[in-house]
Amino acid sequence: MRRVNYVINGGPEVLFVEDVPTPVPGLGELLVRCEAVGVTLPAVRRVREGPEPIPLGGEIAGVVEALGPGVRGFVPGERVTGMCVAHAYAERALLAENRASRVPEHADSVDAVALVRSGLVARQACSSGLIGQGESVLITAAASAVGAMAVQLARAHGATVVAAVGSVPDKRAFLRTLGAETVVGYDEPTWGEPVDVVLEGAGGELVGKAVRALGRGGRLVTFAARPGAISSHELMTRGASATGFRMGSPPKPALHACWRDELWDWHREGRLRTRVHEQIPLAEAARAHEVIESRTNLGKVVLVVD
């Protein structure tokens, strides 16, 4: 089977396609014939920045082909999705049963990798921010896969949304179709402040600016993979608070299952739309990484396996 791999850190050019034997599922694992693989910014950064090459993980969706010992909740032929921790960029991948969930009949594998993981992160961010009806919410990295979900979910909570992005002209229309009332660039002097809640997904130096956009009693929720400094003085003078989270740590399987069902229900009803920037063949994974690094994507970048 074909698999995308790398042996040295660097840009997209270090990725290559190799032929390897089909993996055998171990204890509690599913062998999945992949149909779609989600490409994420953390994975792209891991390839470029290291600290050393590790097997590429990511969201996968496809059809169960075989079961490892101890698997009781799935059968071959079912379509599933989940976070694969290693060698996700492949025609077939191993997925732990406790990370897998079924894809409903109304959806396909591309929908699954565009909705579930990004939707769960956005749902956790909205929950952590305690968003109330009529409040204002600033969302950074708003045109990313998670950001697109967060804009829609914040609107569903009855909030007014300010979307912050790196380049405004090509993203304004996209974000307004999702429900953002205002779209601002990172380099603009103001971000619609004061706001009640900031959902911060960009990280780095933008975290400080996000804190300064908070109003009295505001709440900052950070979930960016790239760290940024938060001034305790800025929080104190605003009577504001800051919190952060990492999906799956600590594990919340029952809560995430409830949220996942909610996301699929809203998707079926048309209240939550998946936004896919481009579907790219598996063998062109390097191009997918180029799109992510260029920060031009509007929604999810998906590798498709034929």
Rank of each mutant, 00 (worst) to 15 (best):
S118P: 13
A257N: 06
R123Q: 12
R212V: 04
V39A: 05
V44C: 11
Q279D: 05
V162N: 01
E35L: 06
S118H: 12
V75W: 06
G239R: 11
T81L: 12
P227S: 06
R219E: 03
T177F: 06
D19Q: 15
E49G: 08
E13A: 10
E188H: 11
D265K: 14
T81H: 06
A141C: 11
L220I: 05
A202D: 04
D261H: 15
T81E: 05
R212K: 15
A150E: 03
T182G: 04
G203F: 08
G158T: 09
D111H: 11
V80E: 01
T237I: 15
L138G: 03
R172I: 07
G38M: 06
P104S: 07
W264T: 02
R275K: 11
W266T: 08
G185D: 08
D196I: 02
V291Y: 05
V44A: 10
V221A: 04
R219C: 09
A100G: 04
V17Q: 03
W259A: 09
W264D: 00
V80M: 04
T81R: 02
H157F: 13
A148I: 04
R155A: 05
I139K: 00
S127L: 14
G57I: 10
D196P: 05
E35R: 11
R268S: 14
G158K: 10
V110Q: 00
G129A: 13
I292D: 00
H87E: 12
S109H: 01
I292R: 00
K209Y: 07
V207W: 02
P169M: 10
N9Q: 12
G10M: 03
T222G: 14
A145P: 01
D170K: 10
V184Y: 02
R219P: 00
G57C: 10
